[in-house]
């Protein structure tokens, strides 16, 4: 599947360090220009660090190309203005700014897609004057997603968007990402394998800062033995996961297989 599309992002021999310690070692993978690619692995294997290294938020070396152009020497703000939307782990909304200010700050050009964001997150419109620090976790995640979706992006880097959210909100976030993925490729870090199963075409698995597996996400999750070995968890078929929210049943059934 991924071979059909030229990659939007190519990472090769990328290494990164935090405070002098190697957290990503010589990794290589590609993100196709369509659909969702999952970046998986147990806790602490370097998923967040990989994303931060791509964005230049931590010290890195190696080669990263976006749409065929080298970005590994560029500062973060230049990489982002090339068209990279970032939804960080733990949301990182600006707590002392209002919802409206958080969104306004994220607008990169004169034509932000405000209508789209208002349609996706009507709750945020109602709360535009509220300080983002006083929002619930789910609402903060909406702000974080909205900041990325406001702009025309070539790639979204989304780090654990469903972490700590109630099942109903998880389903909403998954639906939003599914919607977004129709127009923009996504590199998604996600622990909830049900969400991965629903969204991801390709998968890249890390262990100890290295790539240990790449291939189809569906094939990986269908192989219980492999999933357990690589991710340390059960493959996440529906019987073992929390029941999906009623909301989720409205989703395109073929994606869930």
């Amino acid at each position: 599947m991924s071979a059909l599309h030229a990659p939007i992002l190519t990472v090769s021999t990328l290494s990164a360090r935090i405070a002098g310690q190697q957290v990503v070692e010589d990794i290589s993978f590609q993100v196709p220009s369509l659909g969702v690619t999952a970046l998986l692995g147990r806790n602490g294997v370097g998923k967040t660090s990989t994303i931060k290294a791509i964005l230049g938020l931590i010290e890195r070396s190696g080669e990263v190309t976006l749409a065929g152009e080298r970005i590994d020497g560029e500062p973060t703000h230049k990489i982002v203005t090339r068209g990279v939307g970032y939804v960080p782990e733990d949301r990182e909304v600006f707590a002392s700014l209002t919802v409206a200010e958080n969104l306004r700050l994220a607008e990169r050009d004169d034509n932000p897609r405000r209508e789209l964001v208002e349609k996706l997150f009507p709750d945020l419109v109602a709360r535009s004057a509220q300080l983002a620090g006083t929002l619930s976790g789910g609402q903060q995640q909406m702000v974080s997603l909205a900041r990325a979706l406001l702009n025309d992006n070539e790639l979204l880097l989304v780090d654990e968007p469903t972490k700590g959210l109630a099942p109903k909100i998880v389903a909403e976030v998954a639906e939003t990402l599914e919607e977004a993925a129709r127009t923009v490729p996504i590199l998604l870090v996600e622990q909830n394998l049900q969400v991965v199963r629903r969204l991801a075409a390709g998968a890249v698995v890390l262990a100890g800062g290295r790539v240990v597996h790449t291939g189809s996400a569906q094939a990986l999750l269908a192989d219980e033995e492999l999933t357990k070995r690589l991710l340390g968890v059960h493959g996440g078929d529906d019987s073992n996961q929390p029941a999906p929210a009623p909301h989720a049943s409205a989703l395109n059934p073929e994606v869930r297989q």
């Binding site: 500062p75 973060t76 982002v80 960080p88 990182e92 200010e101 700050l105």
Partner: peptide, 22 residues
């Protein structure tokens, strides 16, 4: 807008750059 950038930067500078702001 500069004021907005400054207030946000005081709180979390690296996230400001991650929104594409110099």
């Amino acid at each position: 807008r500069f004021g907005l950038i400054i207030r946000a930067g005081v709180e979390n500078r690296s996230m400001v750059t991650a929104l594409g702001i110099d």
